[in-house]
């Protein structure tokens, strides 16, 4: 007997070329779409906002159609998205948007609204019945394997090893669908003031309160770490000193 088909949604946004600023398909969302298409042949591709021309790129990357949930300017995308994807088994998206605020909190807010678990930094996703096994990105060449019960929200890491293909024919074949307008909660007045990023941000540093002699002393005093120096002993003893250092700092496990 065939297992029941899972309902999978991929959330896509309008990206931004970092060099020219031109709108494009967001790279991270393309990876999410590609991962979703690898899991199921039918994927609901959703976008909250205007029907921007950049959304056609997702058609080329394999979406049969992109459903656009209309969103009034200044409204929160969470409520229409949550209403639309309720009942889905798996919701995939990129970890961080290229345009807009790009805070990377939408997957978490969506998961809270739908009472689902959320896993971010996903590289690979495997479905195992009513669970999903996810390989998570960790720095320094480590990967973590995590299992999560479905339904779940999964955010793809930008380094996910996928190779989405751009196919012009499927761009011509696909369509943007406009969904009926849903009631979206307006965002509270934003306390954020945005300006073009021309000046370098200032680092936070302590105020200089010392004066005269103390300040000059501080300029010549170096806070050297003064590493240990092993000069005496046989080669074997020196090798043991190295291994002892590695063991005391838990850098090796033997």
């Amino acid at each position: 007997m065939m297992p029941p088909q899972l309902k999978i949604a991929a959330l896509v946004s309008v990206g931004r070329n970092p060099a020219s600023g031109a709108p494009r398909a967001a790279r991270n969302d393309v990876l999410a779409l590609d991962a979703a298409l690898a899991l199921a042949p039918e994927v609901s591709v959703l976008h909250a906002g205007d029907a921007a021309p950049a959304l056609y790129d997702y058609l080329a990357y394999g979406a049969a159609n992109v459903e656009v949930l209309p969103l009034p300017a200044g409204a929160d995308a969470l409520a229409p998205l949550a209403a639309r994807v309720a009942g889905y088994d798996l919701i995939l998206c990129g970890q961080r948007a290229e345009a807009g605020q790009g805070s990377g909190t939408l997957p978490y807010r969506l998961a809270k609204a739908l009472n689902m678990p959320v896993v971010s930094a996903a590289l690979e996703i495997t479905l195992l019945g009513d669970e999903a096994e996810i390989v998570q990105f960790l720095p320094k060449g480590q990967r973590r394997v995590v299992r999560v019960s479905l339904p779940a929200v999964i955010a793809l890491h930008p380094l996910a090893p996928r190779a989405p293909r751009y196919v012009y024919a499927s761009l011509r074949a696909g369509r943007l669908l406009s969904a009926p307008a849903l009631v979206a909660a307006p965002l509270p007045a934003s306390p954020w003031q945005s300006e073009p990023a021309v000046k370098k941000p200032q680092r936070l540093k302590p105020l200089e309160t010392r004066q005269g002699h103390a300040r000059l002393l501080g300029a010549i005093a170096t806070e050297s770490k003064g590493g240990a120096l092993v000069r005496e002993g046989s080669a074997a003893e020196k090798a043991r000193a190295i291994l002892d250092y590695l063991r005391t700092n838990r850098l090796i496990e033997f």
């Binding site: 807009g100 934003s190 954020w192 945005s194 300006e195």
Partner: peptide, 10 residues
């Protein structure tokens, strides 16, 4: 914001 094009203060 905007992938590094804008700086938002708050």
């Amino acid at each position: 914001w905007q992938g590094g094009a804008a700086l938002a203060r708050g």
